[in-house]
Design a protein around this nucleic acid. Structure first.
Lengths: 234, 234
DNA sequence: TGTCAGAAGTACACGGCGTTTCCGATTTAC
DNA sequence: GTAAATCGGAAACGCCGTGTACTTCTGACA
């Protein structure tokens, strides 16, 4: 890597770092190329040497932030004994909320629409990280969920085959978890949604005005979730 | 109401209507006083006779949209026989998703951060509607949930008293549902979160890339939710 | 019916934004 | 040592929300 490339990479990193900081301090929508340039002692034009447009910068930010989330989730799961999938799910869920609370602007960037006019590119920027996240959750749900429970669940839900999944997703998921059953994949999506719900409400400020201890509420929901997954429901 | 007042009210309505339309067509962040004024054939400054600031307009929009959501939910519940709380919950949940799909920009306005620099006033604009929404859900959960189930749930969750609820919320909720138990109120929040999760993921575009039939997924989750509420869990 | 306070609305300005065009300076590569 | 590629600055365009100053019109009251 030549000197020029090194400098370029470093400047790129500095730009994204300042962008994330501005997102965190100024709140969503506080992202501005001019603001970044000002903080770097440059003209706004200079940034266009690194990112062709503001959306491209946002795309890079989303990629970075998603990777950070995926790392946090994997770290949390790995810190738990592998033989206890229920504990793994609990750890995953708690890590999701804790990461979101520690990086609210990141959470909004991925799961809300923090940047006004942004349109993500066709192959989503967070695709690679999203695959890691989904893969990890699929593995956990598959391990935690007795086949009977998933089957009973799928019989009720009518989700016993891969047909509702886009082929690209099926390929990705099966590459990560080869023997995954479609009903478990569908169940994992619902588990994801269940965790996402309370975290999203809390991050967007709709929970604290009505409940002062969101952590307890979330923990209760997680425990109930794991219990319902690991207990055959008949 | 004098002629002047009538004209004023009509212009106010026209402003909010165009604002909502712009939000829907231009996407979040497409809201601009200048754009509204242009469409009305006025100067941007003219709008300041009706809304002192852009945030005030957004506040009015949020109030209108929240009212619309509350209406949709209440209508859906009233269309179901009162004696079947499970069916009421299903209807409520389906109505939530359907309203969100029909008014994605409204959903983002309330539950995401659709408008960049907006800071809601201390007494939230959607407060009145939020009270109706929470009240309705609390009623449904209370009716659907056998006391034993709620108690067992609260024993696990440690939510057997009103202490984690802000006093203002307790007052509002008890005014709507006088004999509500705190464990049911907490459970209702979790139910809310559970519904919100999948809907939020879908509205923000995270579900369709991985599952082509979000309606079925959501229905399965709703059914399982109602089943777990109405079935004592021991 | 005439008058006049106040409301509605315009013209213009300010600073900030993303983005573009043009151009000078610096560094790399042959 | 020179040619090419890259980096970055100055200024401009057309947006945006908002403030000031001024005109026009309306409606209530004498």
């Amino acid at each position: 890597m030549s000197r020029r490339e090194r400098l370029r990479a470093e400047t790129t990193r500095e730009i994204t770092a300042i962008a994330l900081k501005q997102l965190a301090t100024e709140g969503p929508g506080g992202l501005s190329l001019r603001g970044i340039a000002r903080e770097m002692g440059m003209t706004a034009r200079a940034i266009y040497s690194y990112f062709a447009t503001r959306d491209e910068l946002v795309t890079a930010l989303i990629r970075d932030v998603s990777t950070s989330l995926a790392n946090a989730l994997e770290t949390a799961v790995h810190a738990v004994p592998a033989g206890d999938p229920g504990a793994g799910l609990l750890a995953w869920g708690e890590a999701l909320r804790e990461w979101a609370l520690a990086n609210p602007e990141g959470f909004r960037l991925i799961y809300g629409d923090a940047v006004p006019g942004y349109q993500p590119p066709e192959d989503g920027p967070a695709d690679q990280a999203a695959r890691r996240i989904c893969g990890g959750l699929n593995r956990l749900v598959a391990a935690a969920c007795p086949p009977a429970a998933a089957s009973a669940d799928s019989a009720r839900a009518g989700t016993a085959d891969w047909s509702p999944f886009p082929p690209s997703y099926v390929a990705k998921v099966r590459a990560e978890v080869p023997d995954l059953a479609p009903e478990v994949a569908a169940l994992a999506l619902r588990v994801w949604g269940r965790m996402h719900g309370l975290v999203g409400l809390e991050i967007h400020g709709h929970l604290r005005p009505v409940y002062t201890d969101p952590a307890a509420l979330y923990r209760a929901e997680l425990r109930e979730l794991v219990r319902s997954l690991t207990t055959p429901t008949g």
